[in-house]
Amino acid sequence: MNESGKKMISLVSPCFNEEENVEELYRQLTAVMAGMEGYDYEFILIDNASTDSTVQKIKRIAAQDKRVKLIVNSRNFGHIRSPYHAILQSSGDACIVMASDLQDPPDMIPELIKKWEEGAQIVAAVKKESKESKLMFGIRKLYYGLLKSVSDVNIIQNYTGFGLYDRKIIEILKNIPDPYPFFRGIIAEVGFRVERITYTQPRRARGITKNNFFTLYDIGILGIISNSKVPLRLATFSGFVLSFLSFLVGIGYLVGKLIFWDNFQAGIAPLLIGNFFFFGLMLFFIGILGEYVGAIYTQVLARPRVYESERINFDQTE
């Protein structure tokens, strides 16, 4: 609680080139929080070195409203490290994390807080459907199903991180020294009481998505290697099975040649096809192994998640 005796809610939004959305996001958030009696709030935006006027617009808002706080990164540190860093800077009794593109509806804030007041330490907003591309939503749904099936923890499906987190959870996150954290996996790992609320993701009204194949692949493979040893064990099992099958095929060819010595022709095609298959499979598993080694390398370097170039309004008295 702050000095007024009200509970403090931290609202956290990462942004990158969202000049068309930040002012509307601020308007909607302040309208929602104005109706939440008994609560005070801070609004933390972390900018990933935007190249448009996003930072300038946030600075103008922050100059008029000291509850708005801004962190400007020295460069673009990606969509994994930057939001996590911002969450750890929150000071509220609870922290609500949402995207700055308005696809995480601000009008869900009262419901998130209600579930928290009822005793939930984590309130996860789960997408039941999306007004964006049905194909992409279907692919994401399949991925979450795969991730849940191979993970060592109970990953929440169709959950992107949008939700509310109690102060106790934030303090736990501060003690996790992961320089490249898979936030959704960590939330599943820490446990505690989790409540789920569902929503329909609206279509992006302004601007364009910053996700592309590489960012989606990055978060996708990070989710698997951070929470599962199944790919490594699958490589071991596949090697054993394929070795055994190769042995059986070799025996079959040997027997065929001994029985039909003059007529049996092995042919070059099966050898070429077999070699391409085995080499392709081997390269795939070498790539998987490389992802795990790369993750270990990142952990060993233990570099800061972001470097800040500027902070605004963090010196204000709560």
Rank of each mutant, 00 (worst) to 15 (best):
M8W: 04
I9H: 09
I9K: 10
S13L: 14
P14R: 03
C15T: 12
F16H: 07
E18W: 02
N21E: 14
R27S: 13
L29K: 11
T30K: 14
M33T: 11
A34H: 10
A34W: 04
G38N: 04
Y41E: 02
Y41D: 07
E42G: 06
E42T: 13
I44E: 02
D52V: 03
Q56S: 13
K57G: 04
A62M: 06
A62D: 08
N76D: 05
I80M: 13
S82C: 11
S82M: 11
P83V: 03
H85L: 07
A86Y: 07
I87M: 12
I87G: 00
I87A: 04
L88V: 09
L88D: 05
C95K: 06
I96Y: 13
M98W: 03
Q103T: 15
P105W: 10
P106E: 06
P110Y: 09
E111P: 01
K115A: 12
W116Q: 04
E117Y: 04
G119E: 08
Q121R: 07
Q121D: 13
S130K: 08
G138K: 13
Y144L: 01
L147F: 06
V150H: 08
V150C: 08
S151R: 11
D152K: 14
I155A: 04
D166N: 11
E171V: 02
P177M: 04
P179C: 00
P179L: 05
P179R: 03
P179Y: 03
F182Y: 15
E195I: 02
R196D: 01
P202S: 12
R204D: 07
G207M: 02
G207I: 00
T215I: 01
T215K: 02
D218M: 11
I224T: 07
S228F: 02
R233W: 11
F244N: 09
L245W: 11
L245G: 03
G250T: 12
G250D: 02
V255D: 05
G256T: 12
K257Q: 07
F260V: 00
N263V: 10
P270I: 03
G274K: 00
N275H: 08
G280Q: 00
L281D: 01
M282F: 15
F284W: 12
G287Y: 15
I288C: 08
L289W: 15
T298F: 01
R305V: 02
E310K: 06
R311D: 05
F314A: 04
D315F: 05
D315Y: 00
